[in-house]
Design a binder for these strands. Sequence first.
DNA 1: AACGCTTCCAACCGCCCTACA
DNA 2: GTGTAGGGCGGTTGGAAGCGT
Length: 265
Amino acid sequence: MNIAKSLGVRKGSWTKEEDILLRKCIDKYGEGKWHLVPSRAGLNRCRKSCRLRWLNYLRPHIKRGDFAPDEIDLILRLHKLLGNRWSLIAGRLPGRTANDVKNYWNTHLHRKLITPPHEIQENKYNNTLKITESTILRPRPRPRTFSSANNISWCTNNSMITNTLDKDDEQRNKEIVVNICEKPTRETTSSSIDDDGDGVKWWTDLLENWKEFEEEAAAVLSFEEENKLLPNLLYEEHNSTTMQHGENDGWDDFSVDIDLWNLFN
DNA sequence: AACGCTTCCAACCGCCCTACA
DNA sequence: GTGTAGGGCGGTTGGAAGCGT
C-alpha cells in the first residue's frame, strides 16, 4: 500500500514555491532530520521526496548541462571499476549527482557500450537497442556498502569477490585487477578522448582489445591467486590516503576509501 | 500542422543498512 | 536478539520535449 497516497501527500513535479520553502528550511536547520523537514518547511511532501529534491536539484554547486569529455571518461572508467554504484561515481564528479550520472549512463553511455560502433553509425538516427537474448542484462547482486575502513577485510581473499557473482561480474572484477595494476596514464586517456571529442574512442579501443584485456586479466588473477597480492595492494592504496578525519571535501561516503583518482593517474 | 514515436530526466518506489530502544 | 525508524541507494516510471514523417 502506498503510504504517501494514503496520507494525501503531494507527489509529482516540484513548484518554485515548494523549492523556495525547502531551501529556506535547509538554510535554517541544515541537512538531515528529513522526517522533520516537511513540517518545518510547511510542505505537503514526504521526507524522501524532500531529501531527493534537495540532493538532486537544490543543493548548492550542482552542475547542470552536458557532461564534459573528461567527466564521461571518468564515468566510464569508474563504472568499469565499481559497477552501478552511482553515488560513489558521482562522489568523484564534483557538482554531479548520482541521479545525473545514472541518467546519463542509461541514456548515453550504456547504449553505446552494448551496441557495436558500426551499428551506432548505421543506426545514427535510430540506434535503439535490439532486444535479443544476448542483450538482455541480468540483474546484478545488490552492491553492499561498508560502514568503516575496518571492513577493508572484505577483500582479504579473492573468494569474496567471486562468490555471488555471475559471469559478467567476474569479468568486471578481472578488469578491476587490470586497472589497479596498469594504472593507465592520463596522457593516453586524454588523447583517446581528443580523437573524437566524444570519449567514444576509449571504449571502442576497449571493445576491440577485449581479448587482450581478458588474457591479461586472467594472467594477473592467477598471479594474484598465488601471491595473495590483491588485498595488500588495496590496503596500501587505502593507507596511502593522507586525509585527516573531516577533510574529505565532498569525497564522502566511500567506505572502502581507495583513492580512485590516483589509480587513474 | 498534426500525429506518432523516441529520448531524456525528474521523481518515485522498494529495498537495504545502521542506529537505537 | 528483536523490532522500528531514519537515511540512503539503485532501479524504474511517467510525462514533457524533441524529432521524423
